[in-house]
């Protein structure tokens, strides 16, 4: 073996070793949480409210709260994000306004989640007087989710062949008719994938909901969108740091359920992507 080849073997070994340093802790961590948590996850844990200062009972209100927040986030962010992306891809000319939107998307994607929390608190909770509520939390999470949805939708729209637009316009369709009939139907898979992905992130977020919606201990379901709600992520934070003497199996089980929820959503988006890719017609 030449010296150069020896160096190559050594270098590749180091790269492989670094990669193992990255992935092995991931596997171990996941295994750790699953192993410690799965034992305490049963039907009553999933369907009962917490009891006795959260030391007993289940996490049902937190699961429901998180799901409501996901839905609320989607209601606000999906239409807005898709329309904004349509603007950028189909309508925007290369001018100052367009560059400003693009810069804003870049900026929004980099704003720390706690700053979204501050913003939501200042604007929705206090200024708009929505109070600490599902509405305020959903709006905050929705703005946070916008950049991912916009970016994914943009990519999906751009991947639709230009000829589709040309055909439609050449037959006398208006711009919007063209977008609705010849562009959007073929970009839905990409849009859905991006949306589910961004929602799975929103589901795991804690900082933006700290002051906008999260209830520390609310062992019932919310009554309206102006009600507070528990959420899985915040619940895990609360029992891990704020309440002494929580039985470890309860916190592990909560972590497990949160991870499982996020994974299921991710898996959903991966399956969606794969299915539509197979069906791709052009």
């Amino acid at each position: 073996m030449s010296a150069a080849q020896k160096r190559q073997t050594a270098a590749f070994f180091i790269l492989g070793f670094a990669t193992m340093l990255v992935v092995i802790p991931i596997i171990l961590t996941m295994a750790y949480v699953v192993f410690k948590g799965i034992g305490a996850v049963n039907w009553s844990f999933l369907t009962e409210a917490p009891r006795n200062g959260m030391k007993e009972g289940g996490i049902f209100p937190a699961i429901v709260g998180t799901i409501i927040l996901i839905i609320g986030t989607m209601i606000f962010s999906l239409p807005l994000g898709v329309l904004a992306a349509i603007y950028l891809v189909e309508y925007a000319k290369d001018n100052f306004f367009t560059r400003l939107i693009k810069l804003s998307v870049v900026n929004l994607s980099g704003v720390p989640s706690i700053v979204y929390g501050l913003f939501g608190f200042g604007l929705f909770v206090l200024f708009l007087r929505l109070g600490t509520s599902i509405l305020a939390g959903s709006l905050t999470l929705a703005i946070m989710s916008l950049p991912v949805i916009i970016t994914a939708t943009k990519e999906a729209l751009e991947s639709v062949p230009a000829s589709f637009r040309e055909i439609s316009l050449s037959l006398g369709a208006t711009k919007w008719q063209t977008i609705r009939n010849c562009v959007l139907p073929y970009s839905i898979p990409g849009i859905l994938t991006g949306t589910v992905l961004s929602l799975s992130r929103a589901a795991g977020e804690t900082a933006p909901i700290l002051f906008t919606v999260a209830a520390f201990y609310l062992p019932r379901l919310p009554h309206s969108v102006f009600d507070q709600a528990m959420a899985l992520s915040y619940h895990l934070y609360a029992i891990a740091t704020q309440v002494p003497n929580i039985p470890p199996k309860i916190s592990f089980a909560t972590a497990f359920v949160l991870i499982a929820l996020v994974f299921l959503m991710n898996l959903g988006s991966i399956i969606l992507r794969a299915r539509f890719r197979k069906k791709k017609l052009w």
């Binding site: 992935v23 991931i26 977020e205 891990a240 740091t241 916190s251 949160l258 991870i259």
Partner: peptide, 23 residues
Amino acid sequence: LKSLIEILASIPSVVLGFIGIVW
């Protein structure tokens, strides 16, 4: 490997914080 990296990306930060506390 890429799937594992994606899994890491999707773990909520509060869960990592929890791992930090307990382990």
